[in-house]
Design a binder for these strands. Structure first.
Ligand SMILES: [Mn+2]
Ligand SMILES: [Mn+2]
Ligand SMILES: [Zn+2]
Ligand SMILES: [Zn+2]
Lengths: 138, 138
DNA sequence: ATCCTACAATGGACTTTGTCTAAGTCAAAT
DNA sequence: ATTTGACTTAGACAAAGTCCATTGTAGGAT
């Protein structure tokens, strides 16, 4: 939010209406929007914003570490403003609903050396799958 | 392999040269080919096979449970013939090399009820990321 | 062995998601 | 107020994948 805008200004970002709108759209928990969804919501606030600018701004936010790219399915990448609390995802296999989740334990420690093939392992993403309450009862 | 072809025939699959070639290409451990890679290797054995047929056959193999779809990055889906031993993946962040890995423990048990949001959770995919030996030393 | 037909293969058009570029615009430093 | 380079834009382009009408054929029936 304005927190974010402050930080961005501090990083030498030129503050434009387009960037402000994209940053506003990306706000909240359990938010995982596609680029086109971000664009649609941005257009509602600033009709002349272009698709290319949304892609550019999302890319910048990602490389600044302010937004995460999430690829839970094979379709469009999703953009996640919850970049400060490490978390994983729980996805409904039917409707695509996504929740932020925090499993216990350290999954990195669960990969034995014999299963590392000499790799330097630095990170792990977990995607839980199932049915959300609505889809389970349908 | 012929094991697979037997099973497919048993399921009422009509055995065509194209399907045989696709099934032959998808064979081995640590195999995670894109559709276009499958197509290229299939063409080497059967020059007239079309892209659409490769996509159709891969889709059928996936819905039969004989091949897994793996999406480790945002680019093309990858097709994994190792569908019978559950496993996860270790991906080189630089060159994209992929290894099948088997972490210890049961990650499903690591998601507390309070983090399930009422979902019926049935599965979890883990993607470890790091650098392969070649990329780490470069 | 030949015929028949439902299933499969094909090429190309089309869609979706994303990237790139050249030209125009504007935030902010001076 | 001027200047300047960073930013935005529209549209062309590309990669990955889907869809469809047409043509071909595997395998059962005769
Ligand atoms: Mn998230
Ligand atoms: Mn695999
Ligand atoms: Zn659902
Ligand atoms: Zn590598």
């Amino acid at each position: 939010m304005s927190d974010l805008l402050e930080r961005l200004r501090g990083r030498g970002w030129r503050m434009t209406a387009q960037r402000r709108v994209v940053a506003e759209v990306l706000n909240g928990e359990h938010v995982h929007l596609t680029a086109d969804e971000v664009h649609a919501r941005a257009v509602a606030k600033l009709p002349e914003i272009s698709r290319a600018t949304v892609y550019n701004t999302l890319g910048e936010l990602v490389s600044l570490g302010e937004v995460l790219e999430v690829t839970t399915d094979k379709r469009a990448k999703r953009y996640d403003p919850n970049a400060h609390r490490p978390h994983h995802h729980l996805v409904c296999a039917r409707c695509g609903a996504i929740r932020d989740v925090h499993p216990i334990g350290n999954p990195l420690a669960d990969l034995p050396d014999s299963e590392r093939f000499g790799f330097t392992v630095s990170d792990v993403e977990m995607t839980y799958r199932g049915l959300c309450p609505d889809c389970a009862s349908a």
